[in-house]
Each structure stands twice: as C-alpha cells, then as structure tokens.
Design a protein around this nucleic acid. Structure first.
Lengths: 266, 266
DNA sequence: CCAGATTTGTGGTCAGGCCAATAAACCTGT
DNA sequence: ACAGGTTTATTGGCCTGACCACAAATCTGG
C-alpha cells in the first residue's frame, strides 16, 4: 500500500460510493435526532425511490447498518432505529481479537487484568440478589464437577457472568465475556483435569466469600490467584502443544517475557 | 448462552439469512487460514454461483465484510482479504456514543482500568527505545498544544500508543486503542478547552517520569489521576449536552452510581 | 362478538442487464 | 526490438423487475 509518494500529499481520489453515502446520511439522520430510537423507517422500496437509488443499493446499506447495530430489520415488518447496546459497541473488539488468537498469553494477561478489577468492583457494588445468584451458580458448578465436564464449563462461565453482573458495568461484562469465549478452548483443556476442576472450585469459593463480605482487596487477590493458576495450566498445556508442533526448544510466542508481572503490586 | 426462561428451552426460531451464512463462512475461512491476508477472492459472479446464491446476496455480504475491515474491495480488480484495522471498524460508533451517556461512563471505567495497568506494565517492561519514543511524542504534543487542537489530539493518542507499545502486550494495546477511538469525540471536546490541554500535558509528564524511573506504583497512580481528570471533564460535558436534550432534571443514566470507585485501592 | 381464512404490506432472494474502472493484451510508429 | 498509446476482457457498481416468505391488517362466516 504505502499510500502516497513522499512529495505530494494527495488523498487518493476515491469516487464516493452510493452505499457509503446512504450510510452516512442514515447516520446523520439518527444523530440529528430526526430518527429517535424505535422509529420505523419507510419501506425499502419507498425509501429507495425517495433517495433516488435502487432497492439493491439501499439494501446493502441497510444490511450494513444492521450489522453495526444502528437499526434492526424485522422481516415482514420493517426496519427500526435501534438503541446502542454495550454488546454492539464492544462487538468489533472480538473481530479484531480473532486475528490474535494464537497469542494466548497476551489475551490471558488482558483477561486477568479485567477479571481482577471486576471482582473488586463486584465486592463493592453487589446487591443481595447478585450474591445469591453467584452462590447458586457456584453450588451448581460444584455439583457437576464430578459428572460432566461440558456442564461444569458452562457453570464456570456462568459464575463469572454473574460476578460481571454484580460489578455493574455492562461494557466491562461484555468484554470479559468475549475474552472468556476466546479462551474457552484453553479452559476446556484445563477442566478436563480433575485437579483443574478442584482448584477452580476452591478459587471460586474464595472469590465468592470475598464478594459476600464486601472485601474488595480479598476479592482482587482471590481473582488474581485464580487467574494465575489458570494461566499456569493453560500455558503449560499450550507450551506442550507448541513443542509438539514447533521445533523443540522453540519459544512459544508471547510467553517468554514476564507474564502477569502486574501481580506484584499493592 | 444459557439465557432462556427456566422452563422451556426453546431457542427462538429464526430462519437463517443467506447473507449471515455467507458472512460466517467467509469469517471462518479467514480465521482458519484458508484465506491469508492479501488473497484475492474469486469474482463476484463466480463466487456467487459457487456458493449457490445470487450475486445481490453475495454483494451484501461482501459489502458488510468490507465495512468490518475483513476484506478490501477494489473496483475493476476484485476483493482481497485485508488486515483488520481497528480504527476503521470503530469510527462510526464513536459518534453514536456521544448521545449515550450511560455507556460513556462504563467505557470510561473500562478504559481507566486498562490504562492504569498498562502504565504499570510499561514502567516494568519499557526499553530505552520505548522511552525515547514516548519522550519525543510528549514533546511534540506540548509544542502543538497552543496551535492546533486536532494535531494536539493526534499526539495525545500517539503518546498513549507509545506507552501501550512499551507495555509489550499487543492485545492490550489494541483494546486500549479501540477504547480511545470510542472516546475520541469526547476527548476532542475536552481538548478544545485550554485548561483541558494543560492538565493533560501535566499528567502525561507525570506518567512519563514514572515510566522513566521504572516506578510502577507511581505510573499507575499518575495514569489513574489522569483518567479521573479526563473522566470529570467528559462527564461534565456529556451531562451538559444530555440536559439540553432530555427533560430538565432528568437523571443522567449511569452516572449516579460510584464511578471509578476502584480508585481507592492499593 | 370472535376465530379462521384472505388480502396486503414488507423484507429476502433471485435473474439478468448496463455502466465504469482496471488491467492485460494488442497494435503502431520509431 | 521497444516504448507508447489503444483496444479488449474482466470485474465491481448499480439498476430493473420479479417472485417468495413472513407478519399484520382485513374480511368473512358462524
């Protein structure tokens, strides 16, 4: 690419495309308040002729707008201006991170940062209802530990989801969810080990107790220990796998440098 | 997902849409490495018939993929698998956020968590080269403070980018970048104030010094103070705008509860 | 008055066509 | 033989018109 010579700084002339213009106009209309949330857009055929474009072009724009979360298209009904939700806002993150999945160590570090703070926030903000939801999930998780690995994993995920909820920040919750999904395969390998399941249960217990007593510091410490343990499992697994694939002695990417060094703080 | 009623576990029947299926297939192909970056996709007509769909449907999918940054469409040439860049993906959403005070607070909180840890990691891991890059960016930022708001903003962004780089976690860096992009509009409003620019410069100075002396604790504190200040500016601005739009006296959503309460730790 | 059948409106998809931009193959004068 | 412009094939951008599937509104018989 290397756009441009080093002498003239001309923006490459790009003929504006209909779809983009439509998209822009739609965006402006929503931002100007001309189209409040919930407003129903005119039918495609009508809107297309009003804008002076074909229905096909308009549809490409509408589809794009829908994927970006601006509108919701309901077959047989019409298109409606949608509310921006935390899911939609943070969704693009997952698209970007998808290209980095081989870099498990870095994702792990990011996750540990966020989960630690999340646990701390949950300890501060949790309500009684939050607490009982977390407790219930934890108990179900313990029950399934010796029975079904997949079910255990689901309750593991759910536990963290409930903690996220208690932390009261939907954007944070969604981000955590994405990171956990990215690491789901790694976690699955850990959960297959009996030792992995029992240590996870113990860690969740500590986290729960800390949240119950509103002890922010303890919650953060418990979460950090948990994540360190999981990271240890995962990285051992990963390293083992990597060594099977790469030449022996080859460095596993992203794991050579100090990982989780933010451990030694506070 | 688990998000059902507790009685019936019916997933709402949704007729899968061609475009989404195509999109999914494309995504998988890219993630599986079947389509390395730079690969040229078959012509639309050919690909459409190969997939057994109409060219119109395929086009909607390709257009969406292009907007998400997965591919690049060059008229007269073809479609090519592209490296996803976060800026392009996020840009449209940042405007929407201006009117979403609830999530601005939440995103701010998420950003503060990550930037604080990033500063700490940068203090631990930075090299001399990192340091000089950060220093240079900071100096340029100071030079432009009194001249050009847009340029100032760019250097502001760049400063944080350099700190991210020093922290040595690309995934963390990308996430931070996305969050900053999301808040770009808000930051722009802050940077327009002379006071906003001067306090930002002072804060960056503190962060730089802490990183220079490898003082992790100081780096974290400096970053936290900085973010708290920015959050104060942003939320004041947003609140003002929100009150102009919403009915007077209406509570600004999401700001009533403790924000940035993780401040009082360590 | 109401339940079921029918009509109407709407998005989802398709087929085929023309135009515009690009690149590759082709001339053409030197 | 070759540098230059010119033509041609390929490809994406856009349009028209049609049909299908689904949802709501309407009609109809009891």
């Amino acid at each position: 690419m290397l756009e441009g010579d080093q002498f003239v700084k001309v923006a490459k002339i790009k003929r504006p495309q209909m779809i983009d213009l439509i998209l822009e106009q739609l965006q402006n209309a929503i931002l100007d308040g001309q189209l409040p949330v919930g407003t129903r857009l005119p039918p495609e055929r009508e809107l297309a002729s009003a804008l002076g474009v074909s229905r096909a072009s308009l549809r490409e724009a509408l589809k794009a707008a829908a994927l970006m979360g601006w509108i919701e298209i309901r077959p047989g009904e019409g298109s409606f201006v949608a509310k921006a939700t935390s899911e939609k806002i943070i969704q693009p993150l997952s698209y970007v991170l998808m290209f980095d999945t081989e870099n498990i160590g870095n994702i792990m570090e990011l996750r540990s940062i966020l989960e630690v703070e999340t646990a701390g926030l949950a300890a501060c903000r949790r309500s009684e209802e939050h607490l009982s939801e977390i407790r219930e999930t934890m108990q179900r998780m313990e029950e399934t530990a010796s029975r079904n690995v997949e079910e255990f994993l689901e309750y593991d995920m759910l536990f963290h989801k409930k903690v996220d909820k208690a932390a009261g920040n939907p954007v944070l919750a969604k981000t955590n969810l994405i990171l956990r999904e990215l690491l789901r395969e790694a976690n699955r390998r850990v959960a297959r080990l009996t030792e992995g399941r029992s240590t996870a249960i113990a860690a969740h217990h500590r986290i729960f107790t800390a949240i119950e007593t509103r002890d922010e510091k303890a919650a953060r410490e418990a979460a950090l220990d948990h994540l360190k343990t999981v990271a240890g499992f995962v990285l051992d697994e990963t390293r083992a796998r990597a060594n099977l694939i790469a030449s022996p002695g080859a460095e596993v990417k992203g794991l050579a440098k100090p990982l989780l060094s933010h451990t030694e703080r506070s």
